[in-house]
């Protein structure tokens, strides 16, 4: 354990005033640990990595880590990432978003980044709620749940982020939870090594807002809920629809070879300079 802590400390910004903004028990810290371990394993240098985020609790993550970091406007992180990546393709661009950031205000940018298949990794922490602003419902709040703007009941259907990413054309899509921490490490590592648009949806909890309103207990109890409701892709393949009704799949949901935008644009550059031989 001491060794792991030392590794994490190596990647933190010690001149940034801690403590961080997250509530005790929050899943974002767990995700941050997994991110650092995965980055360390991939061997990318700190100078090569650009970590970009939007707004919200999750959006505060990059300020704590010692990379090139960019904290953008709400929902727009992927657009900034597109510019960074295309201007300097040698950089490893990692985008960190919350569910509101990625699929509400940034939903359009999300599907188009996936469609373009730009070589960027998008990590989305899905805690089903707007935490920083006080617990309002998000596009991933399940039907029937309570939030501070659905005090009677949420009447909207929830987005399934990973399935949306697959349909939109992402090359790699995976889902994990902050309960399955080690699993998260390897999903992140695979996403970072994948050429093309890679998405990892991280199921997390907001016990401060969402959990309290829906009587879901402490952070630990909410993580136990993740344990009890997550089913691996392999196991899910052997289960019927009824058995899967209140479960969600974890693991690699899509891993495919698709044309990557930067490679395709390289061809455009060649075409613009040369005479097309026929």
């Amino acid at each position: 354990m001491a060794e792991v802590t030392k590794l994490i400390h190596e990647y933190l910004r010690h001149d940034k005033k801690f403590p961080h903004v997250w509530c005790p028990g929050c899943g974002i810290g767990i995700m941050l640990g997994a991110l650092i371990r995965a980055i360390d394993r991939t061997g990318f240098s700190k100078d090569e990595i650009v970590m970009i985020s939007g707004i919200g609790c999750t959006g505060r993550l990059p300020v704590y880590v010692d990379f090139n970091t960019l904290h953008t406007t709400h929902g727009r992180a992927l657009t900034f990432a597109t510019g960074v990546k295309l201007a300097k393709p040698s950089l490893k661009v990692i985008v960190i978003m919350g569910d509101g950031d990625a699929v509400a205000i940034g939903g359009n940018h999300f599907i188009h980044a996936a469609r373009r298949n730009i070589d960027v990794t998008a990590i989305i922490l899905n805690n089903s709620v707007y935490g920083m602003t006080g617990g309002q419902f998000s596009p991933t709040t399940p039907y029937g749940m309570k939030t501070t703007t659905t005090m009677y009941s949420n009447v909207e259907q929830a987005f399934k982020i990973s399935e949306l990413a697959i349909t939109a054309g992402a090359a790699f899509v995976a889902r994990g939870t902050v309960y399955h921490t080690r699993g998260l490490d390897s999903l992140f590592e695979r996403a970072f090594m994948k050429k093309g648009f890679s998405v990892v949806e991280v199921i997390s909890h907001c016990h401060t807002q969402y959990g309290r309103l829906n009587r879901m207990g402490t952070a630990v109890e909410m993580m136990e809920w993740q344990r009890d409701h997550a089913v691996t892709v392999e196991k899910a393949a052997q289960m019927n629809e009824e058995e899967l009704r209140d479960k969600f799949k974890v693991g690699v949901l899509a891993d495919r070879e698709l044309p990557v935008f930067e490679d395709e644009y390289g061809k455009i550059r060649a075409m613009s300079k040369g005479t097309p031989a026929k």
């Binding site: 992927l78 900034f80 597109t82 510019g83 960074v84 201007a87």
Partner: peptide, 9 residues
């Protein structure tokens, strides 16, 4: 957004 990202790079 892309213009700003590219300029930062």
């Amino acid at each position: 957004g892309a213009v700003i990202g590219a300029s930062l790079a």
